[in-house]
């Protein structure tokens, strides 16, 4: 089987773009086979025969089983991101079908960003006042970036909440 591995970086708030890109690859005949850190391995497939979906979810064995029962295939996970694929002939494949569950997905992402961002801020501040440690600025930079990500996720959530005020 013909395979190729692509190294590509997506910021956490770009998860929709990541998914779009994976589906463009599938439409061109490259099916996601495994994921690594910024690495995606594809295998040749019939163009347009698969839909790929990704979401952030803490490890949950029951969830993977549940998804497999609905006909989805588990591709793999990278940190807290999980990847599934499903044959297009088996019907439309989405992970979320209402606004509430999309919002709770964004909440999950937000919580993780807040936790890691907060930890980096704390370490960064402590190290800044510690004459021996010199790398405090790295943590502060990470914290800034993570907080920026949190802002982007929050923005997405707000627009969904506005929509929900009118309909489901």
């Amino acid at each position: 089987m013909e395979r190729k591995t692509i190294t590509k970086w997506f910021w956490v708030w770009q998860f929709e773009q990541e998914e779009d890109w994976l589906n463009e690859m599938a439409a061109e005949g490259w099916l996601l086979e495994s994921v690594g850190f910024c690495r995606y391995t594809f295998v040749r497939c019939e163009p347009g025969t698969y839909t790929v979906r990704t979401e952030m979810r803490p490890y949950d064995d029951q969830y993977v089983k549940f998804m497999e029962e609905t006909g989805a295939e588990y591709v793999g996970r990278m940190m807290m991101w999980i990847y599934f694929r499903k044959k297009t002939e088996d019907g439309v494949f989405d992970l979320y079908s209402d606004i509430d569950s999309r919002i709770s997905h964004l909440d999950r992402i937000g919580k993780v960003l807040l936790a890691i961002g907060g930890a980096n801020l704390l370490i960064g501040l402590v190290n800044s006042f510690n004459p021996v440690a010199r790398a405090g600025w790295v943590n502060l930079l990470c914290a800034t970036l993570l907080m920026y990500g949190l802002g982007r996720i929050h923005g997405k959530k707000e627009s969904l909440e506005k929509e929900r005020a009118l309909h489901e």
């Binding site: 979401e55 549940f66 998804m67 609905t70 989805a72 439309v92 992970l95 079908s97 569950s101 997905h105």
Partner: peptide
């Protein structure tokens, strides 16, 4: 109405 698996699991 189509329920997506992730939505259904949470619900």
């Amino acid at each position: 109405v189509r329920l997506a698996a992730g939505t259904l699991y949470g619900a």
